[in-house]
Design a protein around this nucleic acid. Structure first.
Length: 295
DNA sequence: AAAGAATTCAACCGCTCCAAC
DNA sequence: CGTTGGAGCGGTTGAATTCTT
């Protein structure tokens, strides 16, 4: 990255400090300085950190750069299907509480999730000509996207024998039919999370939401059942004992070979393949199945 | 190949919250 | 109590990149 960041050097009436403050893209050198300083001294107070490190940046800027980009545990690359599923679920529950949602996706930042939502999800809301907060859109998300995601995650998990991850999905039919919420199963609408989860490495705990329930980080997430409504507002008949998803969703979109799909994605991806959850990179996302919108 | 449109995402801004004084 | 400063959050911007014509 060889970008000359914008500076505030033209302002003669401002203080020297303000004049020297850099803005815009970070250079490699700045990154290095910040990384070295934090490695040596820890995070501390961001404003004084910026000064002591010799960075002509605001503390805010340093914090953002560190948290969103330089932190060693930041995951980069495409949002996986599992992550998409979790984002959809958690957003339906918490709305635009990006940082809260990010707490449950290890290595993902609130900024990244927010960008994902705005660029991908809102785009499709626009295509549907409805507001992202509208009932129509929420219904579509709940009744189409989430089942679709679950299906694809399941297919990917089946295809991948190396699934060392504890991400398991049991189709509701196999499990004996739709599962109603119980006091023992925190039902997030459609994805149920393991109530025994304890947020082991979550610094923020993630258990202080207003509903008083715990949501696992995705690495600990076990989808016990997939639960879909008996009817939905789009007129699909679902929830019968014979099908695990609305029939209309099993074809023709589902005709594609999931394995090939994933391979194709991996071949096309120039990003670092974040092999996560032990199942290979299944980042190929549902948005590629654009024809889902014609339903 | 070039131009314009669309998309992505790093970074900034303004606001709120909270602890220290 | 009120004030102040730092941290963190969600919303927004705009440069860079990718796609389409």
């Amino acid at each position: 990255m060889d970008v000359n960041g914008r500076t505030c050097s033209s302002a003669t009436t401002q203080s020297d400090e303000e004049m020297d403050l850099r803005r815009g893209p970070w250079t490699d050198q700045e990154d290095l300085i910040l990384i070295n300083y934090i490695t040596t001294h820890g995070e501390g107070r961001w404003n004084s950190l910026a000064r002591h490190a010799g960075l002509k940046r605001t503390g805010k800027s340093c914090r953002l750069r560190w948290l969103n980009y330089l932190r060693p545990d930041v995951r980069r690359g495409n949002i996986t299907l599992q992550e998409q599923l979790l984002i959809l679920e958690l957003h339906s529950r918490w709305g635009n509480r990006w940082s809260k949602i990010a707490q449950h996706l290890p290595g993902r930042t609130d900024n990244e999730i927010k960008n994902y939502w705005r660029t991908r999800v809102q785009k499709h809301a626009k295509q549907l000509q409805c507001d992202v907060n509208s009932k129509q859109f929420k219904d579509t998300m709940r009744d189409l996207w989430i089942p679709r995601l679950v299906e694809r995650i399941q297919a990917a998990a089946t295809a991948s024998s190396s699934a060392s991850a504890n991400f398991t999905i049991n189709n509701n039919v196999a499990a004996g039919g739709p599962v109603l919420p119980t006091s023992n199963n925190h039902n997030l609408g459609f994805v149920q999370v393991n109530p025994s989860f304890t947020p082991e490495n979550s610094s923020t705990g993630g258990s202080s939401d207003s509903l008083g329930t715990q949501v696992s980080t995705i690495s600990d997430l076990t989808i016990d059942y997939y639960n879909f409504p008996a009817t939905n507002t789009n007129g699909f008949q679902s929830g019968s004992a014979q099908v695990s998803y609305p029939d209309c969703l099993t074809s023709p979109i589902s005709d594609f070979n999931h394995g090939l799909d994933i391979q194709a994605f991996e071949q096309n991806s120039n990003n670092n393949n974040n092999v996560w959850l032990g199942g290979g990179d299944v980042s190929e996302n549902l948005w590629n199945a654009e024809d889902i919108w014609f339903y």
